[in-house]
Design a protein around this nucleic acid. Structure first.
Lengths: 132, 132
DNA sequence: GGCTTGGTTCGATGACGGTCGTACTATGGC
DNA sequence: GCCATAGTACGACCGTCATCGAACCAAGCC
């Protein structure tokens, strides 16, 4: 006892004054993360991690959420067992005027037109033996 | 003969309708390239490749100019032996409204605050043997 | 013609980021 | 108490990108 060890499901968020343009751009340059941001933007309400439509595994998704949170793009909080996500739209607007909105706007048309210049193709290492 | 082989110092530029948001973000995410864009933006006039203040070698700089050009961010043309550079501001505004301007704006304050989350430190491979 | 100035091309290199699977932990419901 | 649900942590892996130096090329200038 005397050691909660779980800190009661709390999530750390950076103050936006501490995040750099570099961080934000690095966060937004990944197609999967931009997919998350897009879906969050057009959802209009908070979404739990599991409700996003992305082409990556759950563990990878967790990684992306961390990047977005540390870059100050999203805010996360627990509700029951679910972890909810919101865009920090206003704060971002305050700090990097026009940036997030421009990316979101430009993302809308591309959405599934997600054609990264050349990004790792799924790298299916288990698809070498054709017939089971 | 009958083969100019040099195409008379001509430079190829993409139509902005052909460049993706992905490409532009990838171009702008690099601190050195953003440095170039910044300096170009505040110069107010075209600058030749050699006149930029960056922490990288000339050959690396050439590489960065290519990336920027292929992403439609800059336009290049020869004048004598010099290669000049301009921002394609208006066209970019047309295609990705608010994006370039937001980045440029946010870059101004950071300028030398270029603190990439963690980017290759000069990687001085020739500094291993202290005394010659 | 020949030197100088301004950029480019070509490997080689090293680092970091995104990916996965598996094992694990924490809530909530029964 | 126990199982299901939701997400996290941890290695491992591999590709791509930024970087450099050296060799090279093209215009100008004298």
């Amino acid at each position: 006892m005397a050691r909660p060890r779980t800190a009661a499901r709390t999530v750390e968020h950076p103050d936006l004054s501490e995040v750099s343009l570099q961080q934000v751009l690095e966060a937004l340059v990944d197609p999967v993360r931009r997919l998350v941001v897009s879906q969050l933007a057009r959802a209009g309400e908070d979404k739990s991690c599991g409700t996003f439509d992305t082409p990556v595994s759950l563990s990878t998704l967790t990684y992306h959420f961390n990047v977005l949170r540390e870059a100050g793009v999203i805010r996360q909080y627990y509700r029951g067992t679910a972890k909810m996500n919101t865009l920090r739209t206003d704060e971002m607007e305050e700090r990097f005027s026009g940036l997030l909105s421009a990316v979101v706007a430009a993302s809308a048309p591309e959405s599934s037109t997600t054609s990264p210049s050349s990004r790792r193709p799924p790298a299916n290492p288990a698809a070498t033996s054709p017939s089971p």
